[in-house]
Design a binder for these strands. Structure first.
Lengths: 307, 307
DNA sequence: ATGACGTCATAAGCTGACTTTATGACCAGT
DNA sequence: ACTGGTCATAAAGTCAGCTTATGACGTCAT
């Protein structure tokens, strides 16, 4: 192994900072260090030095400099693609964080359940910003009851919930679907099964679960009710993240929202276990007080989310 | 709109740097600033100050401090989840960049096509690092011909290609599938179609495409050959990224690999247009020289990728 | 009660990374 | 040759973040 590859130093020492990555993307777009520098608001020598130190840090030449401009090397193109994913995640972070700041003068006040706020809303906010720049959004995250309360109190203009039913006093429209998936680490015996899992077997096996009362748990229990009773907890954890981490580490099978595990499935840190005939689907809905159809910015956001 | 929300200042001024985000994740894990500080290798006062300035920057309280430790606030939990996605993208970047550095003493030398190197390999490398820490990997990216050449010259131990066929002299195993999808911006008329698109209509409509000769273009042309001839280019662009950007901006419909557009579909910046009866599927294969079944680290990586 | 141990906050001084300004070298096209 | 574009280098200033040293506060066990 190389001397560096085994070092467990903090990521931040081995990955260029966001400013450098943005600069790299700008260089890719413009084909010139100087123009890229202008785009990100620094001078040309600063850009030159920054790209150079990024190349030193990574140990790879990223751009071919010529008197007619700079083009990415092959390795540079690859690095730029990877960098773009970091920057996109940062954009989602920024969109979410700005909404969370929650100024009272926001034109659109959104109340959303945790799952939606975590996985879907940042993307929607980016799309909204692209279509209606200057729409200031504020975000309140909470469970269905909290969302309903805010809407009915007139403290929010649009809500998003993930329950089985629309709360009393609200109207809603389904904007997306979520599916609960049974997953396990690739090392788990279930990941090598050939037959689909039988629901009764699922109900009889201790699982890593969110605590009783969580939305995920409710959906699972109601789906298993017809097949031999409630889910058996192997571990009960307080957050989706904790459940995921336990499952990845091989502690046992878990039941998680599809939204939460897309990346783990793609990288095969988790494997989905097909289940026979159990429908673990739930609707994600936009909601508003009965009679108050969304208008203005709320309507803009709603139309973005409709599938 | 708020004074900040309309500012188009660089992302890096509004998003905390990677070190701060890592620190926040550590605080979430440990429930204590001091212990989190120790984990990321700084002192407690530094952590205290860094979290505080992050809270100032975001305008949101992230942790509840008490003499018995620190817990995330509700907003802090949400911010932490968003931060985790940035850090995960940074981990993928790091895994890829280390492989790209390509020391000659690497124990596992991989040659991969661009699409695979870009979208799948970083995740595999993270998984490999988790299972076999200390396996130094080097990466060479290129088209199928380059991959084959490296393998046959003994300069690579394992290859990944995405063509329609296995190159001469190599054996292979399908490790994943890719599907080409017809996509358009939500504003495009096709996104409001109710009927599936007819292949002959697809062949007759000018599309945003990669340049002739690219893998994507070849697959599309061969699929359309049976339905009225080759694809008509509206724009021919040199990179997947450029095609994607043009499609997102509404320039027209595009045909892109499913891997490349997962995020855009999730956030509805792009909409998939269902097509009637055209199979735009292609296999992604691991390959090695005929007769040289992968062993050691190459076998470890191969077994990770098998679906 | 009281002392020990944990928590986090504050203050002062240092270091280093990144910046700008001011140049210079290089190349292409006029 | 000259003009206008490219990138590189050097010197000097700025500022964020670090460490060390200390203090305040709450909990727990004696």
């Amino acid at each position: 192994m190389t001397s560096e590859s085994s070092v467990t130093s903090p990521l931040s020492h081995r990955v260029p900072d966001l400013g450098a990555l943005e600069l790299l993307l700008a260089v890719a777009r413009h084909g010139s260090l100087g123009r890229a520098a202008r785009e990100v608001g620094i001078t040309q020598p600063a850009a030159s030095s920054r790209i150079r130190s990024m190349e030193r840090q990574l140990g790879v030449a990223l751009v071919d400099r010529s008197p007619r401009g700079s083009r990415l090397t092959d390795a540079g193109a690859l690095v730029t693609d990877w960098a773009r994913r970091i920057v996109e995640a940062a954009e989602a972070f920024d969109a979410g964080a700005q909404a969370l700041r929650g100024r009272r003068d926001s034109r659109l006040r959104v109340a959303a359940s945790m799952t939606i706020a975590e996985y879907l809303l940042p993307g929607w906010l980016i799309a909204l910003r692209a279509e209606r720049p200057g729409t200031a959004v504020s975000l309140m995250a909470g469970n269905s009851a909290v969302v309903a309360e805010r809407l009915l109190a007139g403290e929010a203009d649009l809500g998003f919930v993930e329950g089985l039913a629309v709360p009393e006093g609200l109207n809603g429209a389904v904007v997306a679907h979520d599916r609960l998936a049974v997953v396990a680490a690739p090392s788990h015996p279930w990941s090598r099964r050939r037959k689909r899992l039988d629901p009764s077997e699922l109900a009889a096996t201790p699982l890593i679960l969110r605590e009783r009362g969580s939305g995920t748990r409710q959906v699972l229990d109601s789906a298993l009710a017809a097949h031999g009773g409630l889910a058996q907890p192997l571990l009960e954890l307080a957050s989706t993240t904790a459940v995921k981490a336990a499952a990845v580490s091989g502690a046992g099978p878990a039941v998680l929202s599809e939204l939460a595990i897309m990346e783990e499935l793609a990288s095969r840190r988790l494997v989905e276990i097909p289940v026979e005939g159990v429908l673990l689907r739930r609707d994600l809905r936009a909601v508003w007080p009965t009679g108050h159809r969304p208008t203005g910015p709320a309507r803009d956001l709603l139309s973005l989310t409709r599938a």
